[in-house]
Design a protein around this nucleic acid. Structure first.
Lengths: 220, 220, 220, 220
DNA sequence: CATGAATGAGGTTTCATTCAT
DNA sequence: TATGAATGAAACCTCATTCAT
């Protein structure tokens, strides 16, 4: 499947964990859990140590500062959030008609991001929270977004605008609506009302229909 | 204007400030600024005192604990975020055809919420951040939403579904898409890319068109 | 007495303590005692707090950092060590024949410094120890010495060289021998062998004789 | 030369290094550099390990504790500082007229100690600093001084007093003045103003002249 | 012998809160 | 009501030392 290929083409980050010592992994897991539950600033290193089952000093052998520990969590998320766009031949595939329509492209994208959020929810929560308070994270993210995502996304939108499939609004507006709709769904699904009984296939399909109708070229 | 009437019918919160002593207001202002910049947990009471120009102890004369100070900021937001729906005769007006269409209703809503966010951005940032970490806030909000917003909103949606204006999806899905689209716009506008040069009238209109096309009843 | 006038013309530093709160004085006293006994780096702030009878946090209300506490001790010493030379009319007096000879000048100096060291030994120990490790202290001291002491001292030496009382060596060599002899005596007296039974009047007189013979113009 | 013979007759300490493993030497060198720069208490063993290029644990294979490492540096200095006096036949030589005068004896002594300080300055700095804080070091030193130096020195002084070369002050006063003058010169030369452009031969000769005049028998 | 991960006691500093003034 | 000195618990972090490899 194309979506799976996208994921495979992700970045490093995966193998890191394999090289990590057991304690380091425990620390990371504990930190992710605590940070996502109580927030970075409200979580103490002693709490993390306790939950990880290590001495407090051990944390600082692996991460020079508490902030470093945060960054070790957040930096991979930084890229993985926009991972599909980082694949080298990503845009190319779109243009080569791998997904004959914007709808199919969106479908692939939403399914892929759904799986990602489902799998990495705590890390993503931390990322979203701390984005607001750490200018370096924001800056790194902005850099990745502008450099690797926005351009490709704009070309894809233009492509389907030229094919007459979607409306001739400014690409950034189309991008905003697309992202907003997808992210809005995922946040509602996983953060706002996670306990509700969701029929994800149906809901995703409705979301795609909503988005596509919203963006389809108006017929006179 | 209807929208203004809505606002007037808001809750307390407004007059509170008039009864407040000058120092109390200063403290509140300082706390809002600091909490929204650095986050609740990362802001110290001594910082707030310094910024407010009062002694450290004075904060605790007015607010028993730091948490109380947070709640004093967040609680009004809680209701004001969904304020339009709290007006007693709100739904009634909709049904009495004050806004002949879902589109007009949405237009009034988005304009109203736009002004609100613009005016109270820092408080809203605090609210969104801390919602994640304080179950009481979440619970209060859920309560207000379920009690006062969801029901009315569902009735409004049903109303326009019966009038044939909007698509026959489950009302909660329609609500989600509506809210998601509006909130997505406001967040992009005020939090993600506030520094961009926005033509708000145009952008709002595009957003409404997107939403209405996305939700319009499909014609065979 | 001239020596007493010198002392009176000292700098500020004296009245500071009067304005200090009781706790601040206690902290300073405790810190001086501990630093001089165990050294700055080997003394913990918790030890100081215990000895001062205050909470550890109280130290940091009065001194932002442990280093600040050190500087609060060392900075006054910095000037007081060379205090006699800081009197505005000090050199003038020497030239106006207040002390008819280099010998009398030295006698006044050594007596004055003797009293000073006796009174402030712990602070002086701290000063001497930490001078070696804190470039800022060294730099401040060098500044004071070059600016206020060396020049005056050189003029005094030249004065008595011209009067034929002391030998025509380079002034800096004469200064070195004078200081070395005085400081060597004081260090032996108060640091190396403080417990010995000293007849200070006799020892001072011997030291002066030694110095004066060592520096007297050689007769052919 | 007699002075060289003295040195040869020193104690152990010299050959130690030959038996030492390469790593042990590196550790010692690193420790000497760091201790003399930042002080014993302010230097961490991990810093030493880094500078020595060994693992943290390796230090503790060679020295049971950090204190042991300090003692390994300081103990040799302890004896070497007063080394000339430790030669078995040292005093004997003086009396047998190897140095026809106190002046020549002092000249040999000051030259010898000059070379020693020049060569081992960092170790000597450490010794001087830590002397103040470690009673065992002070006690050991006092023991060596009283046992091996003071007695010999006193006899030498008496010898030249009887020969009429130097003044009839209490020997301990003469010793103090001699040591003070020599040490005062060396400290000024190597610690206080090391960066100045010294003409050591001239300065040493002036120092000797100063000392000899200061101590010479007064002529009526 | 050498390593370096792990420890836990203890270091400096911050913080929310109290209370005498 | 307002102050700000005082508190002591707890924050982050460092350190000397140990021990399995």
């Amino acid at each position: 499947m194309t979506e799976q290929e996208l994921l495979r083409e992700l970045l490093q980050a995966g193998d890191e964990q394999e090289k990590m010592s057991e304690k380091k992994v425990k620390i990371l897991e504990a930190a992710i859990e605590m940070f996502s539950e109580k927030g970075y600033a409200a979580t103490s290193t002693s709490e993390i140590a306790r939950k990880a089952g290590v001495a407090e000093g051990t944390i600082f052998r692996h991460y020079k500062t508490k902030k470093d520990l945060l960054m070790a969590i957040v930096t991979p998320v930084l890229t993985r959030v926009v991972a599909p766009f980082l694949a080298r031949d990503f845009a190319q595939k779109v243009f080569e008609d791998d997904y004959q329509s914007y709808e199919n492209f969106i479908r692939a994208l939403i399914r892929n991001r759904f799986d990602f959020v489902k799998k990495h929810l705590p890390m993503i929560k931390i990322f979203l929270q701390e984005l607001a308070f750490h200018p370096e994270i924001k800056e790194q993210y902005r850099h990745i977004f502008v450099e690797h995502v926005y351009d490709k996304f704009r070309k894809i939108v233009s492509h389907f605008q030229q094919k007459g499939e979607i409306i001739e609004l400014p690409p950034e507006t189309v991008i905003r609506m697309t992202i907003t709709t997808i992210v809005g769904y995922l946040i509602t699904r996983f953060l706002v009302l996670p306990e509700r009984d969701w029929d994800d296939d149906v809901e995703i399909e409705h979301t795609i229909q909503f988005l596509m109708h919203g963006l389809s070229r108006r017929k006179e």
